[in-house]
């Protein structure tokens, strides 16, 4: 690991002073916050990330899970993933989120990783991690090793000719489906970022993962009151039974009137640079009977613009079946 300096600010204000004046987004920042450290320190060992200074925010508080006025829950940015997943309110009111968190990483990592850090974790694209290969995300303008290389884990939606990496988080897929809101503090005070606007598609700037500015700090993630506790699930398909990143994952949530779908949320992981939602697919579910045919049609709509690489064509069929199965499980409809 390259040398860096270390500081431990004792308040949110002190933390913000430590990053004040940094241009650009947090992805590119030279001074970075560290809390769980599970991804950042790993990337620093691999020499993929080279911050000059780390500010340890792990003792700032911001680790509570609290009721909020909209009837939802506020998840502290520094609450650990394990504590969030096992929180009785999260389990009862947002079971899809609890399930998603517990589908990710290992028990040790979930004890370390924070909610804010989960949002900022970076892709596990092999070429991003391998400094001996070109990567537009790691070194802008050098090219993409994955496009002509081994790309079975890569994106089928929303990719660009610069980058086909996927976002690795499970938690974020459920947060996207729930329409969570990210609360951020910065030099101009507080602002909120709708979850759909937090992460970016690669486009021409794959080296930037999110719209969080380099002088901002995530303080909390707000969940709306609606948690779809009666009819939702998180389905993760991966190469091992446990402790592997998703090839495809699906957060599916329904509101039902009897066997008729009133509204639907559908978010996919493992297929794009950010958790993938498709308004047309969700709108198409509303008013339809909760049946396998309806679910198959939703999968077709969601995947209509999918583009495959040389090794990941299987992801289209896998995503179709995963969507149908997740929606069927959420609706309590027989499937096989």
């Amino acid at each position: 690991m390259r040398a860096f300096s270390y500081g431990r600010p004792d308040s949110v204000d002190a933390a913000l002073r430590g990053v004040a004046g940094q241009p650009g987004t947090t992805t590119e920042a030279a001074v970075k916050f560290v809390a769980g450290g599970t991804n950042l320190l790993d990337l620093m060992k691999a020499d993929v990330m080279r911050p000059e200074r780390l500010l340890d925010i792990s003792r700032l508080g911001l680790d509570q899970i609290e009721e909020i006025e909209n009837g939802g829950l506020r998840l502290g940015a520094l609450a650990r993933n394990a504590d969030t997943a096992y929180d009785a309110r999260v389990q009862a009111r947002y079971p899809m989120l609890s399930k998603a968190i517990l589908a990710g990483a290992s028990a040790q990592l979930r004890n370390m990783a924070t909610n804010g850090g989960n949002l900022l974790q970076r892709t596990r694209c092999y070429y991003f991690y391998d400094t001996g290969t070109p990567c537009n995300k790691r070194e802008p303008g050098t090219g993409c090793g994955a496009l002509t290389g081994v790309n079975r884990i890569h994106a089928i939606l929303g990719a660009s000719d610069r980058c086909i990496a996927v976002h690795p988080s499970d938690m974020c897929v459920a947060l996207a489906a729930l329409d969570a809101v990210v609360r951020v503090s910065g030099p101009k005070g507080e602002r909120t970022i709708p979850f759909a606007d937090f992460h970016r598609l690669p486009g021409d700037t794959p080296h930037i993962d999110s719209n969080l500015a380099a002088d901002e700090l995530i303080t909390a993630i707000d969940l709306p009151a609606e948690g779809f506790a009666d009819h939702s699930t998180y389905l993760k398909v991966r190469d091992r039974a446990s402790y592997a990143f998703a090839l495809v994952s699906v957060a599916a949530a329904l509101k039902l009137d009897g066997q008729t779908i009133r509204s639907a949320r559908l978010a996919l992981g493992g297929v794009a640079h950010k958790p993938w939602r498709d308004p047309a697919a969700e709108a198409g579910l509303a008013g339809k009977p909760a049946s396998l045919e309806t679910f198959r049609e939703a999968a077709r709509v969601l995947l209509r613009d999918a583009r495959v690489q040389s090794h990941n064509a299987f992801k289209i069929g896998l995503a179709e079946r995963a969507i149908v199965r997740a929606l069927a499980e959420a609706a309590g409809v027989e499937h096989s």
Binding site: L41, S58, Q108, L109
Partner: peptide, 28 residues
């Protein structure tokens, strides 16, 4: 040394973690 194998697991304040993915200074 990358948090993938668990051989470095220790308990910090009673909770299991990967000691390879945290800094000694963070354990103050």
């Amino acid at each position: 040394d990358h948090g993938q194998c668990g051989a470095c697991t220790v308990l910090v304040d009673g909770r299991r973690i990967n000691s390879c993915l945290t800094l000694a200074v963070m354990a103050e």
